[in-house]
Amino acid sequence: MRIYLRLLLPVLLVVGWWTTSAGSTSPFYPPLRDVLAAFGESWLFARLGSDLVPSVTRLLVGLLIATLVGIVIGVALGRSRLLARALNPVVQFCRSIPGTALVPVSVVLFGIGDGSKILVIAFVCLFPVLLSTLDAVRGIDPELEDVARSYRLTRAQRLAFVLLPAAAPQIFAGIRTALGIAFIMMVVTELYVASNGVGFVTLSARNSFDVPQMWAGTVLLGLLGVTLSALFLVLQRRVLRWHIRMTERN
């Protein structure tokens, strides 16, 4: 019963879309059948390698750079109060810039290619990771550090076996925020100016008035958002299994 109720609204939405659009003569609201046809034609084969793969690659590479750099800087600032104080104004300002405002500048500086998009995605996603790492490292129980020091763990061991695992739950929360922002940045960089990508295809379909293609692109981007978020949750559940099970106990 419960599961049916949960599926009721999504099913109604799709059925509603199908029936209201079936006889539609409006050029803006093509029959869902045509949208699905366009979807299958473009996104299942033809544009998979030429547009979907570049989009996803830029997003993931940008996010990966942001994660690595964010953790490194976050740990450094979390360990050194002096450094954190010194850089606080810069970090606070940079994290407050609405990331999308940087897209025009990134194009001016680095062009419209992959590098430019990856850089701006990485820069904007850096701050959620950095700040959550900083917060986590500062919050680490001093008792654990005493244990690590009294058993003479090396700096590298302390980082790998104590600091990072202890900070991992918060770091993952930061990466999750960053993933959402990375997706926005990916789409916006492609809508602003690009030569390929799902966003680019969707927006340029408007110029050729290929409306079913636009709807198909929108559907694809939506599905992509859902898929990436789900995959991230799977990854998080694997890496933080101890934390999830520990929290469930209490």
Partner: peptide, 16 residues
Amino acid sequence: FFRPIPVVVYLPIMLL
């Protein structure tokens, strides 16, 4: 389902 979809996705269609 809709939560992980960033709204910029709907921008082209909305502009249309």
